[in-house]
Every structure is written in C-alpha cells, then in structure tokens.
Amino acid sequence: MQYKLVINGKTLKGETTTKAVDAETAEKAFKQYANDNGVDGVWTYDDATKTFTVTE
C-alpha cells in the first residue's frame, strides 16, 4: 500500500510518499525521515486516506 506524509514543519514543509506493508511500517519510515530532516512535532494519521501529518 502507498502512504503519504504531510510535513508542516517550522523550516520544512511538503509531502512525501512511501510504499509499506502496513501503517506501522510506514509510520516508522516517516518518523525516521522527519528525524533525519530535523522535524519534531505532533503526529496524526488518517486511515481513510492513508495519510500521516506531522506539525511542529
């Protein structure tokens, strides 16, 4: 399945996608991506759209 990440950071904004077997695996990949880019915020997930959002 394909999952999307929407980033609403202080210095980084945008979107990225990943393919993963489940939401938990996608979340780990997205959190690593956010961490690598210095984004630390509040996470939400919408199962209907398979979209994670992180807001600083």
Rank of each mutant, 00 (worst) to 15 (best):
G41R: 01
E56V: 10
G14E: 12
F30K: 00
D47Y: 08
V39H: 04
I7A: 03
T53L: 05
V42W: 10
D47Q: 11
K19E: 14
D46I: 05
E27S: 09
A26T: 01
G9P: 03
Q2H: 11
Y3S: 01
T25V: 08
D22P: 01
T17W: 15
N8G: 04
T11K: 12
A20C: 07
T16Y: 15
K31R: 14
T11F: 14
L5E: 01
A34V: 10
K31V: 06
T51Y: 03
D22C: 05
A20V: 04
D40I: 14
V54R: 00
V54P: 00
E27I: 12
T55M: 06
V42G: 04
D36T: 09
T53K: 05
G41K: 01
D22M: 04
G38T: 04
E27M: 13
T16E: 06
E56H: 06
N37K: 13
N8C: 12
G41Q: 01
M1I: 15
Y45K: 01
T11W: 14
D47R: 08
W43I: 03
F52S: 00
G41V: 02
D40A: 13
A29M: 13
K28V: 10
V6M: 07
T16H: 14
T16S: 09
F30N: 00
I7N: 01
E24T: 11
T55Q: 06
W43D: 00
K28Y: 09
D47P: 14
K31F: 06
K50C: 05
M1C: 12
E56Q: 09
T11H: 13
T49K: 06
G9N: 05
V54C: 07
I7K: 01
I7M: 07
Y33T: 03
K19F: 15
V21E: 11
T44W: 08
Y33A: 03
Y33R: 03
A48G: 08
N8Y: 13
K4W: 13
V6D: 03
D46V: 05
D40L: 12
T53P: 00
E24G: 10
V39P: 02
K19Q: 14
V42D: 09
A23L: 12
T18M: 15
E24A: 12
A20K: 03
K31I: 08
T49D: 04
K19N: 14
T44M: 08
V21L: 13
Y33M: 05
T53I: 05
N37G: 05
F52W: 07
D46P: 00
V42A: 09
F30I: 02
G38E: 07
A26Y: 01
F30R: 00
Y3D: 01
W43R: 00
V39C: 04
K13S: 11
Y45A: 00
K50E: 03
M1A: 12
V6F: 07
G14L: 15
A29W: 15
T16P: 03
T18G: 04
G14D: 09
Q2T: 15
T55G: 04
D47E: 14
A20E: 04
V21K: 14
K13V: 09
D22K: 04
K31D: 02
L12I: 13
N8Q: 11
V39R: 02
V39W: 08
V6K: 08
D47I: 09
Y3E: 01
T51H: 03
A34N: 03
L5A: 03
D22W: 03
E15C: 14
T11D: 10
K4T: 15
D46H: 06
K28S: 08
